[in-house]
């Protein structure tokens, strides 16, 4: 806790630089390749129609979307981990992501007439229902691992639902939906960006407002209540906001795992502080960096093919979660 302010400032600076660097690399790689040197000029005044199309309509929306979705996920993860006092909490581990995904898949496959901007609302109801179930059930369980396993049990049930929906409803689109279920940012345009931005404009400020409450909640339920926090109401509010953030993300690019889990942990380790007023915004920023980097890795690593961004996040995130469980186990042996 030596220099929280300086640590915060340097983390902000490093993440911002990383974000810009990843975005620049993302904008420049691909066909046509645009050298980094020429990138500003190409962005402002593209000489070539081909370059303009590739930059402004293919690559830029993707980078922006990855940053926005990563931001939403990082914030959602920080809210859930602090609010539930469970260091392993994350939307995908509490069934929230699967709840959203089932609804999105049902809307897409069954052709439910939901207007496009309202798809996140529909996803929200699904995510909220499953998330609330998992949290209600999980509160009774002492161990954080058991809580997470509850979420995973719900998730496997829901993935059965999604597979049934997809194979029965749209067998021809199986591959496409597989991509979606892994979480992918391929082929997204400005329409998706607008959709997510609209929702985040509401949800992000709401999430950041919870910072003080979160700090109080961390003391424990009874001390928080004694200090005037309405614990249940605050938790319900937290869950709604976190689900809203997740729903927007899932509606745009599928259930991308582990960004929400990792971002807050990275921030807490680097800051050596658990102050939610710092952790929340920084987790959002780090989440944006993580997802943008993961998406660009997924794009570049196996050119000309592209692997889903969700795969990259799982391959990085799951081992880290395993390590977290190990360290938690070492601290509190059963």
């Amino acid at each position: 806790m030596s220099h929280p302010t300086r640590a915060t400032a340097s983390l902000v600076a490093v993440s911002a630089v990383a974000l810009v660097a990843v975005a620049a690399v993302g904008l420049s790689t691909g066909t046509p390749q645009i050298p980094l040197r020429d990138l500003p000029q190409a962005l402002l005044d593209p000489a070539d129609e081909r370059v303009r199309l590739a930059l402004l309509h293919l690559r830029a929306p993707r980078v922006v979307l990855a940053a926005l979705v990563g931001l939403a996920l990082g914030l959602a993860g920080a809210l859930l981990q602090d609010g539930l006092r469970n260091p392993l909490a994350a939307p995908e581990l509490l069934g929230v992501s699967s709840g959203c995904a089932v609804v999105v898949a049902a809307v897409a496959v069954l052709g439910v007439p939901v207007p496009r901007p309202l798809v996140p609302v529909a996803a929200l109801t699904g995510g909220l229902a499953v998330g609330a179930l998992c949290v209600l059930v999980g509160v009774r369980l002492r161990s954080t691992s058991a809580q997470i396993l509850c979420g995973l049990a719900c998730a496997s049930f829901l993935s059965g639902c999604v597979i049934a929906l997809v194979t029965l409803g749209a067998p021809a689109n199986a591959a496409l939906l597989y991509q979606y279920l892994l979480g992918s940012l391929a082929n997204r345009g400005w329409a998706d960006v607008r959709l997510v931005a609209l929702w985040l404009a509401v949800a992000v400020p709401a999430g950041l407002l919870f910072a003080r409450t979160l700090n109080t909640l961390k003391l424990g339920d009874d001390p928080a209540a004694a200090l005037g926090v309405r614990v249940r109401r605050a938790r319900a509010g937290l869950l709604v906001v976190a689900t809203l953030l997740t729903a927007a993300a899932v509606a745009a690019c599928g259930p991308i795992g582990f960004v929400a889990l990792l971002a807050p942990h990275i921030v807490r380790r680097l800051l050596r502080s658990t102050d939610a007023r710092r952790v929340l915004p920084l987790a959002a920023l780090v989440g944006a960096v993580l997802l943008t980097a993961a998406d660009q890795t997924a794009r570049v690593v196996a050119e000309p093919r592209e692997i889903a961004a969700g795969i990259v996040t799982v391959l990085v995130g799951a081992p880290v979660l395993l390590a977290l469980i190990r360290s938690e186990q070492a601290r509190s042996p059963v």
Binding site: G160, C161, A164
Partner: peptide, 17 residues
């Protein structure tokens, strides 16, 4: 496998509880 997941998921939940 989708059918068995539909049966098994809830059972797993009940067992954890």
């Amino acid at each position: 496998g989708a059918v068995t997941a539909l049966v098994g998921g809830p059972l797993l939940l009940a067992l954890i509880l």
